[in-house]
Structures are given as structure tokens and as C-alpha cells.
Design a protein around this nucleic acid. Sequence first.
DNA 1: CTAAATTTGTTTGTGTGCAAATGGAATTCC
DNA 2: GGAATTCCATTTGCACACAAACAAATTTAG
Lengths: 149, 149
Amino acid sequence: MADEILVDTEPARDEAYHLDTQVGFLLRKVTQRHLSIFGAVLPEITATQFATMAKSCELGAVSQNELGRATAMDAATIKGVIDRLQSRGLMATTPHPSDRRRLIVTLTERGRVALEAMKARAREISEQTLAPLSLPERRAFLRALKKLT
Amino acid sequence: MADEILVDTEPARDEAYHLDTQVGFLLRKVTQRHLSIFGAVLPEITATQFATMAKSCELGAVSQNELGRATAMDAATIKGVIDRLQSRGLMATTPHPSDRRRLIVTLTERGRVALEAMKARAREISEQTLAPLSLPERRAFLRALKKLT
DNA sequence: CTAAATTTGTTTGTGTGCAAATGGAATTCC
DNA sequence: GGAATTCCATTTGCACACAAACAAATTTAG
């Protein structure tokens, strides 16, 4: 019961941990701001769904898991994203002709049109996100982000 | 029906959108890497829960929403986080003496001990996350992150 | 060729995150 | 002092994100 009593054995606790200067916390806040800009500029789609469509446009017909790897989503996550895009008629899936495990995912014609209509605003989102930085700062920041990938 | 037919009115689509160079996508991947490091170094807690405990230690007794604002979580999010920490005996809630709306949240003694035991490893997580950058690069990167908050 | 290992997609469970709606409590403003 | 506003906490619903377990199909190794 003695260790329940709090005396000055408690040695002036090392308070020198400041959350606000930690990378992880700053990353979370910057991502929050970015996603808030995204939602304001492209309210009709989520950032994850847009990334999926943009990557699908880059890669053409690939399997669901392959698209997931290209967009940094695990199998469970990409499944849900594709499901939602499919239910909105923006993407479609077809069985692979020779490999019966695979599900080929592609943009629908409607998805292609929608994507083209969104690309300009997507660039604007990146622009707005980086707005507080000067041109050289932006380049350095993006270079650092790539190194930290 | 003519607009269903795809001829070369389609003007060599502007493919010049590369997901992998966009801030948002890079932010997501860097955050993923950071959280992966976090999970490896501090498997007993989530980054969000740790942030909540660390901030609670900094601020002392504050209301639930106040702690949420300090950790960049909305009311719904901080509630769930506190619930889980409370069910593990790391934090506790008490009604505010004069304001019956408020819920005062604090670290338990066990929470304080656990937090102190985690702080050193938390610093190591930040270190490992930034490891690919040189010292000047780290400073510039953190400064940029703060500007983008 | 066949057994073992791998790959693909799915499901379940847990943990953020945010929007919107709610109800109760405190504050402001006239 | 009372009405309007604001604040606090909660709940619900949706959308990631990942771990773990699974079945079916394919590939690899012996």
C-alpha cells in the first residue's frame, strides 16, 4: 500500500516531450489540412477514390490487388474503394481470361469522362496545399517527402 | 447516340497527371511508413492513443473536447480514443465540479507510468521516421510541415 | 506429377476520421 | 430575466486502413 502514496519520490517528471514538434503529429495535421482542401475543391469524390481512378487511368487494365499496390492500399482497402466506385458506375470489374483468381478493374467510359473533368481541380488542390511555401521550399519539401516514402 | 461512338474527336487524352508526384499521395505514403515504424517500436499502443496521453500529460486535467482540440481530433474521434484508453485503465474521466457539460480527463497513475516508459521509444520513432534525411534536411522538412499546418 | 508454397480476393474485427443530428448545459445579449 | 446563441458530449453513418484468417486458384519444388 506504500506505493499508493505519492510523495516527492516522483522526481520532477521529464516533461520534455512536446507532441507538437513530432513528425508524426505534424504529418497528421498537414494531411488533415490537405484533405479539407480536397473536400472543398472536389466534394463529389474522396481523395482515395480519386487516386484509384487516376492510377487506373495511368495503368490501364490491371488486377484489383495490383491497382491496390500501385495506390498504396492493402487488399481489404482497395476492395471497398472499388466497390464504391463500381456502385457509382465509375469503374468496372471483369474476370481475368486465364487466371480465375484475378479480377480486372478498369475505368468505365463515364469514369474516364469524370476523371478528365476532375484533373484540373486535382492540380489546384496540390497547389493550394503547398501555397504556404515558396517555390524553392516546395521543391525541397516534395524531394524530402519522396525520400521518406 | 452519336456521342456514344468513340472516334478521334477524343484528342489524345491529357495523361500528364502522375499520382506519384502529388503532395497528397506522398503525404499518405510517408504517414503509412511512419505508422508502420510506430507499430514496430510501440506495438502496445496506437499513435493516436499515444498522442492523447502525451498531450494529457502536457496539459494536466482538461475537458475531453479541449484535449481533442489540442490533439487535432474532433469530438467524435476523441471520445472513442478516450473510451479505449479508459477501458485499459490508462486514463480516467470525472465530471467537472461546476460545469455539468464538461468531462474532465486525466492520466491514471498507471497511465503516467506507462507514458514515461514509452517516451524514449516515441523519440526513437521520430528519429527513425526522419532517418533518410540529413540534419539540415530534417530541419527544413519540419519547418515546412509547420508552415503547412 | 504432386505436395508445398504463393497469390488473389474476401470477410471480420478494430481503430481512426469526419459530417450531421441530438439533448443538455452554460453564456450572451437585449 | 428570458430568448437566442454557443458549447459540450454523444450517437449514427460512412469511408478509409490494417491485421488476421480463409478458400480457391496458380505456381514452384522436389
